[in-house]
């Protein structure tokens, strides 16, 4: 644990978290590679497979103050059968809601393969008192959440109090019990790719089962370069410790095309072993409709109309 302090040195050479090395990021190379991967053309049967995979790894999300139990129930119905008239469409990976709505989602998704995910830990800022945050995590799990999405304490991380940020995640992991822990880094607030990689490493060694880009509550969210940066951190982690951590991309993913770009980035960086719901997720609310529209286009040969798809 002493080398946690090593992270506080500003240069890459001595940078480490709990024995895991953190190498500096070549920002220009990273963005260029991410952009190159996003030009990959995916057609016909590959496209069909990519669309179905995008649905299977999707965390269908609703995180609004106006969420009602009825709305969550409707979302859960969609999660099980995304297309009401075409049951060949696979169900999504999970439904992601606020803790208070976890019991509703858990009941609606009982006896289905769809998991219940809950944000917790003072989402989206993560600055509620630590006891309250941990209690919220434990409450969500007790209420039926299979997965818990907490936020990194950016206040602690950005001011260099890495030990505190680490301890909080480790605490949340403990409070989670058997539920999966996803740690949201809120990359848009971290400032640089080096910081994103550092935060990724910190969250992973602290016990995260998944690292996640964004809350979706600020303007800047998942971008191809950020996805690649985090995927590389996960690859580093796997190489150094043998531990496989999952990646969840969220925020601003609205089109099927974006979705398969991310599949390409993850597939090329981490290999096909990561292209499963166990290790990769796309958090989105409006993405599903676009994927369904593309799927219908492949099936019928007609471009679809947004109005024909459900609003929520």
């Amino acid at each position: 644990m002493t080398d946690l302090l090593a992270i506080e040195t500003p240069t890459g050479a001595a940078d480490a978290v709990a024995g895991v090395r953190i190498t500096p990021v070549d920002a220009v190379g990273l963005e260029q590679r991410a952009a190159a991967l996003c030009t990959r053309s995916i057609k016909t049967s590959s496209k069909a497979a990519a669309l179905d995979l995008a649905i299977r790894v999707m965390d269908l999300t609703t995180l609004e103050g106006a969420d009602t139990p009825e709305r969550v129930e409707a979302l859960c119905t969609r999660a099980r059968h995304p297309d009401a008239v075409d049951w060949s469409v696979p169900s999504v990976a999970a439904v992601c809601v606020y803790p208070e709505l976890v019991p509703v989602a858990a009941e609606a998704l009982a006896h289905s393969a769809v998991a219940v995910a809950s944000v917790a830990g003072g989402f989206p800022a993560g600055l509620a008192p630590l006891e309250a945050r941990l209690a919220e995590v434990a409450w969500a799990v007790a209420a039926g959440a299979d997965e818990v999405d907490i936020v990194l304490n950016r206040s602690a991380f950005l001011s260099g109090r890495y030990q505190k940020a680490y301890d909080e995640i480790a605490g949340a992991k403990q409070a989670c019990g058997s539920a999966h822990l996803k740690v949201i880094l809120e990359t848009g607030e971290l400032g640089s790719y080096d910081q994103i990689r550092r935060a990724s490493m910190l969250a992973m060694v602290a016990g995260a089962d998944f690292i996640k880009t964004s809350t979706g509550k600020i303007g800047t969210s998942a971008t191809p370069a950020v996805a690649l940066c985090m995927a590389e951190a996960i690859r580093d982690m796997a190489e150094q410790t043998g531990r496989s951590v999952g990646l969840k991309l969220a925020g601003g993913i609205r089109t099927a095309k974006q979705a398969w770009h991310y599949l390409v980035i993850v597939g090329e960086t981490l290999g096909p072993g990561w292209l499963t719901p166990e290790r990769f997720r796309l958090g989105a609310s409006s993405l599903l409709n676009d994927v369904l529209m593309q799927r219908a286009k492949l099936r019928d040969g007609r471009y679809q109309r947004r109005e024909d798809y459900s609003v929520d």
Binding site: G301, R302, Y303, Q304, R305, R306, E307, D308
Partner: peptide, 8 residues
């Protein structure tokens, strides 16, 4: 054809 077939 794609214009005529477009649902929108």
């Amino acid at each position: 054809p794609p214009l005529a077939g477009h649902v929108a």
